[in-house]
Design a protein around this nucleic acid. Sequence first.
DNA 1: ACCCATTGGCTAAAGGGTTTAGCTTTAGGG
DNA 2: CCCTAAAGCTAAACCCTTTAGCCAATGGGT
Lengths: 184, 184
Amino acid sequence: MPRAALSPDAVVDLAVCLVDENGPEALTLSALAARAGVATPSLYKHVRNLAELRELLSVRITDKITDELAQAVLGRSRDEAVGALMDAWRAYVTRHPHRYAMVIQQPHPGMRAPGERLMDIMLAALRGYGLEGSDAIHAARCLRATAHGFAVLEASGGFGLPELLDDSYDLLKRMVVAGLTTPR
Amino acid sequence: MPRAALSPDAVVDLAVCLVDENGPEALTLSALAARAGVATPSLYKHVRNLAELRELLSVRITDKITDELAQAVLGRSRDEAVGALMDAWRAYVTRHPHRYAMVIQQPHPGMRAPGERLMDIMLAALRGYGLEGSDAIHAARCLRATAHGFAVLEASGGFGLPELLDDSYDLLKRMVVAGLTTPR
DNA sequence: ACCCATTGGCTAAAGGGTTTAGCTTTAGGG
DNA sequence: CCCTAAAGCTAAACCCTTTAGCCAATGGGT
């Protein structure tokens, strides 16, 4: 076997750096090859094409977020678990806004497993509310929609006044738990 | 003055068609020129570049959404207004998923006015709750985050089981109004 | 120690999209 | 009737992606 300087994982690593530094637009195979010290076509030995690279990035990032959410939920239940999960979600986004903006929501085959893993964590966080069957699904979807919606807007600078965002997010968390605990 | 077959507005019209039919990816100046029956560089007589075209599209779409939300909120207040606003939001997205996925959230200068107009409608819908100052801002942001979050996920096919989405959205609406009416 | 198959890298080149430069044509006003 | 401004055109540069085909290094088997 030849010099294994690069590998699919290493390529994704470099791609993450590029995105962190210059945003999703900056992820081109040219720039990536330059960063790797390699000619552009060489990248095709490790990655099928640009679309696949984006997918690998999405998987990597989604997995990382899921890990952090799982960590945050550990040992908590009900309102506390939901609050911790949402806080961890936003913490990731504010730490890596470009990365978050990079993850694709389209239902690519490679994103199925990470998506389900994320869903499972949310269902686990909601376990204490005793929701059954599709009620749990609806609740998890709402949790995801709220956290994701706020995250997207914050990551892309969609909010005008940054000094109050913590308070806005507090209200959002209260909304979610109120919706989960209010009877009907 | 010469043959005014095209105009900035007409170009945006055609761009909307292209996006509706083939998704945001399909919006290229080449495809647009072909659709307009014109050589690609001719488009630069009406639009500064691709970035500006995208911005004009975002403005057009955001304005249209705002109009529909305003219409929906008319004559309603409190929970009813919020529910109608959120329903109208989702109705637009399901009617034109590709368009919605096209609107940029980055704070471009041209998007300021449409963004503020949208915000004003949301504040109007929330007026009945008697929120003062920054409390109203926080509530409007949460309303936006929830509606937008659900919309993005639905528009990009991020949810797995489409038959239950109405029920999920009902819960989301209940969450928002519960968060607005729950004291603390 | 040597061979050689596999693998990772390279150059060349095609193909498509954006954008600029500069020319030509048309339509409307004086 | 002309002439200017707007709208179109072609040519061409530039960048990015992707394919094709070649070269070199590495390490396992003999």
